[in-house]
Design a protein around this nucleic acid. Sequence first.
DNA 1: GGCTCCAAGTTGTACGGACAACTGTTGTAC
DNA 2: GTACAACAGTTGTCCGTACAACTTGGAGCC
Lengths: 250, 250
Amino acid sequence: MSSKSPLYRKVAGDLRTAIAAGEYGSGARLPAEDELARRYGVSRGTVRQALASLRADGLVTSRRGARRVVLGGAPRLQSFGELRSFARWARSLGEEPGGRTVAVDPAEATEEEAHHLQLPPGTRVFRVRRVRTLSGAPVMVERSTYPERIGLLVAEMDVDEVSHSHQLELHGVLFTDAHHTIDVAPADADDAQLLGCGVGHALLRERRRSTDPAGTPVEWSEDRYLPGTVAFTVHNSVATSALGRQLGEE
Amino acid sequence: MSSKSPLYRKVAGDLRTAIAAGEYGSGARLPAEDELARRYGVSRGTVRQALASLRADGLVTSRRGARRVVLGGAPRLQSFGELRSFARWARSLGEEPGGRTVAVDPAEATEEEAHHLQLPPGTRVFRVRRVRTLSGAPVMVERSTYPERIGLLVAEMDVDEVSHSHQLELHGVLFTDAHHTIDVAPADADDAQLLGCGVGHALLRERRRSTDPAGTPVEWSEDRYLPGTVAFTVHNSVATSALGRQLGEE
DNA sequence: GGCTCCAAGTTGTACGGACAACTGTTGTAC
DNA sequence: GTACAACAGTTGTCCGTACAACTTGGAGCC
């Protein structure tokens, strides 16, 4: 198997599984960078690249002078792969994802849609509405707007297709960046009917703008989840020196 | 002003302001790494470190073979970076943050609290309840649990102190990492009274576990926001994944 | 015991070089 | 004109080195 993945990814993966397996328990200190470099026969820079990835995912701390410490507590999920695709996310948690496309409508972009997709207002777009299920129970209504190029591909898919993003990948359409806004919104008549809740019932709302590797918007979507079915988790860390810059800086 | 901040930070800051000032509009291509390195008189590695920071914030794309592209369109609310402090976040949006401490209670840690703070159950902790306001209007109830060491500091603060985290910083307590879980929860009697809504009213809930640079938990908090007052924004990309989605309750 | 101080260990920053992989453009052939 | 091929430009990966900044633990002292 000719693995084309870079070295630092291999190192990062090993460390991830080692942590997940409990070889380094919560609060344990990782081996030093030099030690890891020797162990894997790579340079320190490569090890640092691997560790930066773990840090970004909130698995370890990292500060000058001290070895890295494993941050315990939270369940560790592969982050972006799951978020990019409802189907992939559900399966990674052992749930069976399902879905049904309720409507695919060509339309002219509203001002808001045009803005988020960076198109001139009135451009032809596709609006797709879907119900998403976990183990058969409806949990989410998804309203997506696609540029025409993408929408045409979506329109050809089976209404029971589970993963649109996977199908789009096969056509060379990639979602690499996404900006999310999360808040609460009341169910409208459609939501209520599709999710089986009352009109006005509070739903967890996620609005999302996805772009491809070139930075071109490829999707503008609004998802509404039944409360209790899903929670969003985020990890964030501060770069450095919060103390060093309360004076004069910037 | 002898700025001790590293070089790559200076470069990153310059690029950030240049983008914010519109020198590179949405979709524009940044100068090549070599060009930037020449321009600033630094090595390419340093430039790459600066650009990695922009990428992590979702300001630019980056892929092999092509110049970086500015990702426009996104409203420039400071995202989760400011999330570690309600006061700082509010001020960055031009709102006047306020708050009132409703209760500070020493207590013995419940099983859940002990778990999140990585303490033995029954350890003494402090529970602090606060109402947070924006321009005078209450928007959020904050229930935090601190280890005794931190709680003692909080207990001494003025009940009208706006920023606990700032005060704690002055005592050398830093919050550098945080793990957030966001979902919807109904208002209980206290929430209803403090926020002026009905019991059972759906609130946007954020649960947070913060740690210091050494990885020691320093706060476990549950915040409940009135819908419509705030929204959480997150950016993620394949390289800098910092977001996950998690099922149900534990 | 408790304290200061020092040395070893560790990560952060920055430099330099080399090659691989990919993109966009240009130019040629048909 | 269209399709293909070559090419220059650009970012990704990896190596090596050096020093700075910081943490930790232990030695020594009071």
